[in-house]
Amino acid sequence: MTAQDSGAKTPEEATNFLYPFIDSEEHDPQALLVDLAQSAQAKAAESTALRRSTLAASGELVESAGAELARRFAAGGRLFTFGNGGSSTDSATLAALFARPPVGDPLPAWCLTADQAILTALGNDVGFELVFARQLIARAKAGDIAVALSTSGSSADLTVALREAKRRGMYTIGFAGYDGGAFATSPDVDTCFIVRSQSVHRIQEAQALLGYQLWSSVHEKGAVVA
């Protein structure tokens, strides 16, 4: 029986770098607590530094995108967000921020991952790559806004949806990590926010802050529903 068959960890396990103390031979509870605290502090410091550098690099993009969103909302535009996995929950949070803001007027925003019946029906009937594009065909119009959140920036269902959004005259925004993936060079993405990190966790944390800054920019510009 191999180590993999028995469920035993191997020294080369890919996730060891995230929590090195898990395989530690340390049996002193106090020492383990120190390791845990140091690990959390290191991750927090890394996250803070990345968010600061990302905001600094994206400030002008946030302002220009915020101005375009405010203009489109004022003209009757609506916001549609979407993503996969953890990015689907981030897209839901972003849509809720616009639709149910802590301050200011609510703006029309929907997350396309919210309806399980629609997602499973489309995935089963026409294919998973079309689960967001088909919703945009049914619901969106010229003047609306499409926001795709991804860590890779290359997910097929997102790139297909952004292509459809662009074809329909929507303003398209992509959130990506790493080097931006397909979003970074796509003619279907009007604005691409890139979080330059190799960590999915840190990418999504920084993207969440970028989303808030985008909403804040729209709010400061006095966006109203037409």
Rank of each mutant, 00 (worst) to 15 (best):
residue 88 S to L: 02
residue 91 S to E: 14
residue 91 S to T: 14
residue 95 A to F: 05
residue 96 A to Y: 13
residue 99 A to G: 13
residue 99 A to W: 12
residue 106 P to E: 05
residue 108 P to G: 14
residue 111 C to L: 11
residue 114 A to R: 15
residue 116 Q to R: 15
residue 117 A to L: 10
residue 119 L to R: 15
residue 121 A to D: 11
residue 121 A to K: 12
residue 122 L to V: 05
residue 124 N to C: 09
residue 128 F to D: 06
residue 128 F to Q: 09
residue 128 F to Y: 14
residue 130 L to H: 15
residue 137 I to K: 07
residue 138 A to L: 05
residue 138 A to G: 08
residue 143 G to N: 04
residue 144 D to V: 03
residue 145 I to C: 01
residue 147 V to A: 02
residue 150 S to T: 10
residue 150 S to Q: 08
residue 154 S to Q: 04
residue 157 D to H: 11
residue 158 L to Y: 08
residue 160 V to H: 02
residue 163 R to N: 02
residue 164 E to W: 04
residue 168 R to M: 08
residue 172 T to I: 04
residue 174 G to I: 04
residue 176 A to L: 12
residue 177 G to D: 09
residue 178 Y to L: 11
residue 181 G to P: 06
residue 182 A to R: 14
residue 187 P to H: 04
residue 188 D to L: 00
residue 189 V to S: 03
residue 189 V to H: 01
residue 193 F to I: 03
residue 194 I to S: 00
residue 195 V to F: 07
residue 201 H to K: 01
residue 201 H to Y: 07
residue 205 E to G: 00
residue 206 A to K: 12
residue 208 A to N: 09
residue 210 L to F: 09
residue 211 G to L: 01
residue 212 Y to N: 11
residue 212 Y to A: 02
residue 214 L to E: 02
residue 216 S to N: 13
residue 217 S to N: 08
residue 217 S to M: 08
residue 219 H to Y: 10
residue 220 E to I: 00
residue 220 E to Y: 01
